[in-house]
């Protein structure tokens, strides 16, 4: 396996932040650590980059243990949430910063390399711009270019989209994904945004309280969550007990029929445009159902309706 994280543990002030983190990334794959804030995903990333030391465990990249080395000797490059561009240097100087430490790169080749990488991130001609004249999206591209130009074996992305507004975020996601696929660069991405994780990743590890609960493809995670936490974290979900067993049902999978199924009382209608969310009361508690808006004019609050939950059991 190209990247292997082996039983990573981290204690901090006698608190266990990471409890045996294990995962692998294939070459060229986009792997995402997804989890709520404080789950240890950024700590994992920082250990892989070498910014903090692990308490125990190992990090292998391309067959070598790298966690003994200081960050400057590791084949990784990080893009931070706030980009961390050097404000006292211009775009060209920021990008060439990492090249200076690569002995195999000749000074006369810098220009070509910088031009090439700026083309990749769609910033041709920006070489001499000062950092404080750039927009958020442009800063992000420079940060990415600065990391890519050193040709890292593993690219680390620490919530790189969370400082952008919604529209720009969509655009940058698409661009970064395209660049990653074009270059075939192995990528570890950290986020708390499930949509981001689902749309970008080849594989996702869902983390909570220092443990990875499930590693799977986005589709598998959505369709076959291992437990209630993942079912809820990865998408809207009704989790309930039926005959002392735990079940879950996604709101969009619940069917309303003219007859049959189970009885439910409509208590609330939330119009959301294309869809309308119905809140119904059943013996298991309150259940949410997503219905196409055009189909639900006939239901009124207080009506009893028939539903098929299509629930699946869960641990």
């Amino acid at each position: 396996m190209f990247v292997r994280i082996d039983k990573l543990n981290k204690e901090f002030d006698k608190k266990e932040i990471l409890k045996g983190i294990d995962f692998e990334i294939e070459k060229g794959q986009w792997f995402t650590l997804l989890g709520p804030s404080g789950c240890g995903k950024t700590t994992t990333l920082n250990i892989i980059a070498g910014f903090i030391n692990e308490t125990s465990g190992n990090v292998y990249i391309d067959g070598n243990v790298i966690n003994e080395k200081p960050p400057e000797k590791r084949p990784t490059a990080t893009v931070f949430q706030n980009y961390a561009l050097f404000p006292h240097m211009n775009v060209k100087q920021n990008i060439s910063y990492g090249l200076k430490f690569k002995k195999e790169v000749k000074k006369k080749d810098y220009k070509e390399k910088i031009e090439k990488v700026l083309k990749v991130v769609n910033l041709e001609g920006f070489e001499n711009r000062e950092i404080n004249t750039l927009s958020g999206g442009q800063k992000q591209r420079v940060a990415l270019a600065r990391a890519l130009v050193t040709e890292p074996k593993l690219l680390l992305l620490d919530e790189p989209f969370s400082n952008l507004d919604a529209k720009l975020r969509q655009k940058m996601r698409k661009e970064v994904k395209q660049i990653q696929q074009k270059l075939g660069i192995t990528t570890l991405f950290v986020t708390h945004d499930r949509e981001e994780a689902l749309s970008l990743s080849d594989k996702i590890g869902v983390m909570k309280e220092g443990i990875i609960h499930q590693i799977d493809t986005p589709k598998q995670l959505y369709d076959n969550p291992k437990d209630g936490f993942i079912a809820k974290f990865i998408g809207n979900c009704n989790v309930f007990l039926k005959n002392n067993k735990k079940y879950y049902a996604r709101p969009e999978n619940i069917e309303i029929a003219d007859k049959g199924g189970e009885k439910a009382v409509l208590i609330q209608k939330n119009y959301m445009g294309k869809k309308t969310q119905l809140e119904v009361k059943m013996t298991y508690g309150t259940i949410l159902i997503d219905v196409d808006s055009i189909k639900c004019d006939k239901y009124n609050i207080g009506d009893t309706i028939n539903v098929f939950l299509h629930e699946k059991s869960i641990s």
Partner: peptide, 16 residues
């Protein structure tokens, strides 16, 4: 000082 700048520098190959 925004310390992620320091870590980027280390990450890109700069010594302490």
């Amino acid at each position: 000082f925004d310390e992620s700048q320091f870590w980027v520098s280390r990450d890109l190959g700069g010594s302490f």
